[in-house]
Design a protein around this nucleic acid. Structure first.
Lengths: 106, 106
DNA sequence: ACCTGACATGTCTATTCTGACATGGTGACA
DNA sequence: TGTCACCATGTCAGAATAGACATGTCAGGT
């Protein structure tokens, strides 16, 4: 969707004449991806704390081992919805979730 | 997915014998929905602060007015991905985003 | 009364995501 | 060496979500 959005905005030509705006878009996209990756790391950490295998977590979520692996790998095919749901399923509180969001990117 | 997940877990019968576990699942689902609703509210607030109409925000996002309306209404057809992307597009920092996540539910 | 701008809601099609499956790689342990 | 648990990666059909469009409502201005 990122590429498509950029192209769409480009073709629209509406208020996005300069390079700065495009850079800002890239930044947002980057921030989004970083967020997902940190959620992924948090997920792996949480799972291990619970001494669960990927198979175990998959069962807990009603998903499959391969999808859990992709979640933890930050695969582009994994939505933030899924990551957040998984963390909640592992008992992560909203406050703890917020900490992941606030965490300074490396 | 919530109903489907519950049914799936139910049919699996794996480690989910008692009512407590089902209640926990409902709680997670509820927390997730609350989160989305609060993101939706934050989005509306941010948009107004920027003095943007839904059409304006839609253009900024490369989306449509109707989708923005659904985002702000917390429509089930709107993903958390989209809400977070929209907030980032409005210049919301990770720290501010985290505040939404941490906010105590009403 | 008539516009006009802003928002809500329903529905379409196309794209994206999901769970499932297959398969391969690694390390541990007998 | 076998095999067993664990994880990674690719693929695919079906489910969920995306943007777009049509249309309706409401408030403010004329």
């Amino acid at each position: 969707m990122n590429e498509a959005r950029k192209r769409r905005l480009q073709s629209l030509g509406w208020r996005f004449g300069n390079a700065k705006e495009f850079l800002r878009l890239s930044d947002e996209e980057a921030a989004f991806v970083e967020l997902k990756i940190e959620l992924a790391q948090a997920l792996r950490g949480r799972r291990k704390r619970h001494r669960l295998s990927q198979v175990g977590l998959a069962r807990l979520l009603g998903s499959s081992q391969s999808r859990v692996a992709k979640m933890e790998a930050g695969d582009p095919s994994v939505s933030m919805d899924l990551l957040v749901r998984a963390l909640l399923a592992l008992g992560v509180s909203r406050r703890e979730l917020a900490r992941v969001f606030a965490a300074k990117a490396a």
